[in-house]
Design a binder for these strands. Structure first.
Length: 634
DNA sequence: TCCCAGAAGGTTTTT
DNA sequence: CCTTCTGGGA
């Protein structure tokens, strides 16, 4: 498919790389209005944004030199969306698409304009990031903030501030007042003290991401020139996973874009709001629709799950939103028998054994790989892994706890790190046969790091030679996968020498922060060694490194946005859902997220030893109403 | 050092 | 809800 650099007429534009888009999706893609798109799982929300970007860039509806800004929560989501746009658009178009995490966007604003802030809010230019937690806020309230001036209040007033709500309610709860609080309440006084201490005390400024968000909002509120520049730069704004938007983020967007000609598209699913504890707004869609006069546009198709699963999903959806409309499944059923069941086991050990058997037989009948399955738990994946892992290993199917720690880095995070991706890419190129496609990938990634222009053929050729020499040497030096952690570290060190530590750090600011780079490199070395231990070949070791032949085990939160042929939810009991009563909506949303990861089959398991099923009776009732039955297995 | 009572954690993104 | 941590007192 040729990607055209020239402009396409709006009436001639066609979606790229997909069979069809539903009518409403097409409306959103071509829309010139602010819109909120509420769509369930599997509706193709990210795809919709990628198509809309293509339409706007290719038809000139986003006219050059104006750009599109897309914000996501997680960096992999931001990268994923950018990659889809690059697949669909010529480079000249794709270069006008900025896909960022919200935090990166806010930090960028503070880094560019922060020095223009009034003195009381101005961070030092070399500020450090901090990740404060409850104990830290508790310590602050008990120590530094313990004795307020008489005009503000008493020690008792400060002690009355709940630690849990100090950050969200007082430190970040409202827009920053330019000149500070003139008659502060005790909580406002404490919040201001925290701000001033973080900004000005000692030699360093320490800021958290939400604090950066508040500073960014203040910058643009006080600086109409900068705001106007952003409005001119971006003709369109996309916001992904909008249901998880925080007040800080929303206020920033409102300050920049409300009342401008920038067209805003907010996409998400209110039924998948499982980040309320992380300061997500109660109903961001309602606020957005009202403030931005946005047209709410639902999507009705589900391209992920079979018709029967979509039917059951709808029963759950109605519990979360009684006006939910049943989506239309566009995925055919490929399994026979029930698509959802609850299995009762006498003990976790029996459960493990039976689940292995189930995975094995399903793999055979449907020609599936271990990666087509997922074992989901609500929390404490390690506890479940202890019982499940040995049983799976015995059967020759490795199980992999994605939330497990390698050194100090979570496995799932390590695999998403650029440094790790680069390592695997280079090792695949050097150590495995049929490495052709890794050649172009390596050259592309490394070329970007070295700042080689894609169309500078001479420089490309020169670098290709360099890469070839290095790869040949690597192949010779390390014929076999590493046999000790030291050897793994040496190998990783050699690769880094070639890639250039400084270049890697320069392109990824996160690697310049604290000792994160060292942690990632150490984790990559350890994981490479661990993956090599039982591997007969380099290719096997790298497959293990990437977990290509293992059944993943993870929490519901980690599974958000992913999809699997078969979902096995282990432990549908009161113990795992201890917090069910505290926030039934959030808990049911978590249940909904878990269920909707499946394309073909969902299995819930239950063991009496882990808890009863009275507290979460409503979940069982929902399944029962959908015709899902409990089966005594063993 | 041990014991007991009460508190806290669990699900977590981000350069 | 259940498990683990913390601190006071013996």
């Amino acid at each position: 498919m040729a990607l055209l650099a020239r402009r396409v007429r709006s009436e001639d534009w066609q979606p790229i790389g997909v069979d069809e888009l539903e009518a409403n999706a097409m409306k959103v893609v071509r829309s010139a209005h602010n819109r909120s798109v509420i769509a369930g799982p599997g509706a193709g929300k990210t795809e919709l944004l990628a198509q809309r970007a293509s339409f706007l860039l290719q038809t000139g509806a986003a006219p050059p030199p104006r750009r599109i800004l897309a914000t996501s929560f997680k960096s992999d989501a931001a990268r994923n969306l950018a990659a889809r746009v690059w697949q669909r658009c010529h480079r000249n178009h794709a270069l006008r698409f900025d896909s960022l995490t919200f935090d990166a966007f806010a930090k960028g604003l503070v880094d560019r304009f922060g020095q223009a802030l009034p003195k009381r809010w101005r961070p030092r230019p070399n500020y450090e990031l901090m990740f404060p937690n409850d104990p830290m806020f508790r310590g602050f309230l008990e120590q530094e903030a313990s004795s307020p001036p008489k005009s503000v209040g008493t020690e008792h007033d400060i002690r009355a501030i709940r630690v849990k709500s100090f950050e969200r309610r007082h430190l970040l709860g409202a827009r920053l007042p330019e000149a500070g609080w003139s008659k502060p309440t005790p909580a406002q006084w404490a919040a201001d003290l925290f701000w001033q201490t973080s900004l000005h005390k000692g030699k360093q400024t320490f800021l958290s991401f939400p604090m950066l968000g508040r500073l960014a909002e203040l910058i643009l509120r006080l600086n109409p020139m900068a705001t106007e520049a952003l409005r001119l730069t971006y003709s369109h704004l996309f916001m992904d996973e909008f249901q998880d938007t925080t007040q800080v983020q929303y206020d920033l967007v409102r300050t920049i874009f409300l009342g401008s000609d920038t067209v805003v598209t907010a996409v998400g699913d209110n039924k998948q709001q499982i980040m309320r504890w992380a300061m997500a707004m109660d109903n961001p869609f309602a606020a957005f629709n009202a403030d931005f006069d946005a047209i709410q546009t639902p999507l009705y198709n589900n391209y992920r799950s079979s018709p029967d699963l979509v039917r059951i999903q709808h029963m759950l959806a109605k519990a979360l939103d009684d006006r939910a409309v049943e989506p239309v499944s566009k995925a055919a059923a490929t399994v026979s028998g029930k698509s959802c069941a609850i299995f009762d086991f006498s003990s976790p050990e029996v459960e493990a054994k039976k689940l292995v058997g189930l995975v094995q037989s399903e793999m055979k009948t449907h020609d599936l790989s271990p990666r087509d399955f997922v074992l989901l738990v609500r929390q404490r994946a390690v506890d479940y892994a202890e019982v499940l892992e040995p049983a799976f290993r015995k059967a020759g199917i490795p199980l992999r706890n994605e939330a497990g720690l390698v050194g100090e880095v979570m496995l799932q995070d390590l695999l998403a790190e650029e440094a790790s991706e680069l390592l695997v890419s280079i090792l695949r190129l050097a150590m495995t046969s049929r490495a052709g496609r890794h050649w172009s990938e390596c050259q592309h990634m490394l070329g970007l790091l070295r700042g080689i222009h894609p169309e500078d053929d001479a420089a490309q050729a020169k670098f290709a030679k360099l890469l070839d020499t290095f790869v040949c040497q690597l192949t010779k030096t390390y014929e076999e996968p590493p046999e000790s952690p030291e050897e793994a570290r040496e190998l990783v060190g050699d690769v880094l020498d070639f890639v250039g530590r400084d270049r890697l750090i320069a392109v990824h600011p996160a690697y310049a922060q604290g000792d994160w780079f060292d942690k990632v490199i150490e984790a990559a070395s350890l994981h490479l060694y661990a993956s090599s231990e039982d591997a007969a070949s380099w290719s096997e070791a790298l497959d293990t490194y990437e977990g290509l032949q293992a059944v993943p085990l993870m929490t519901i939160h980690k599974s958000k946005g992913l999809e699997y042929h078969t979902v096995i939810f282990v432990g549908l009991d009161d113990g795992a859902w201890w917090s069910f009563d505290a926030d039934q909506i959030e808990a049911t949303a978590g249940f909904f997220v878990a269920f909707t990861r499946a394309k073909q089959r969902v299995i819930f398991t239950y063991c009496p030893s882990r808890g009863g099923r009275t507290k979460i009776a409503t979940l069982y009732q929902l399944l029962e109403k959908a015709g899902v039955t409990i089966k005594q297995v063993a």
